[in-house]
Amino acid sequence: MTPILTVEGLTKIYPAFRLGPVSFRVEAGSIMGFIGRNGAGKTTTLKSILNLVHPEGGAIRYFGMDLAGNERAVKQRVGFAGGAVDYYPRKKIARIIDVTRRFYDNWDEAAYRKFMDAFSLDPQKTPRELSEGMKVKLNLVIALSHRAELLILDEPTSGLDPVSREELLDIFTALKDRGVAILFSTHITSDLDKCADHITYIKQGKLLASGKMDAFLADQRARGAGNNLEEIMLHYEKEDFREKLAD
């Protein structure tokens, strides 16, 4: 089956940071956890695959199509939610939605109403009146109402209380069961323990591993790196910190 998203050899060079090469693929009906420390290059990777920044090299394909030249068609089928980003904080949600829906060929008004109701979102409120968790849910409503087949989520659970995080993870799992693919960047590894079935780990811009969660955990256990994502991250990142202190 054609992967929903394929990233091959993605590189992006900034004066003080180099990302890549990064390669991974996201399949339909799966949750790919994208982990790494703050500053490891997670957001740069996500921005690259959304064409918000321009990579120096690599290929990005959605649904078997190159992103370059097919951006409109691709974005009809992809939704993005960043944890900290909110748009037009003083405009009513109803107005934001009324404008946004015009851009999507597959906008499903019934689905929009259903998700607004399910997430207890009031369209007469403004984004600034919403909690951080509700803002993420609003972005999810927009993505789901245009029947996005891939959700790209940049640290959607950062800053959320445990109950809100648990709620969101339940939503992600339910979406996965409906065939939606989710690429979920976070440094809160416990969230991924609960819902991710694939993992991509980058460290200081370099790809450390990418594949099925079970295989990744088994491999890391065998190497003595740890039994879960948090232990594995601590193993690699603390090791590096100790090396720096020793220098």
Partner: peptide
């Protein structure tokens, strides 16, 4: 209001 980012994420030619 993050208008530029909102616009860039829409299914349009940026």
């Amino acid at each position: 209001t993050n208008d530029v980012l909102y616009s860039a994420l829409l299914p349009i030619d940026k």
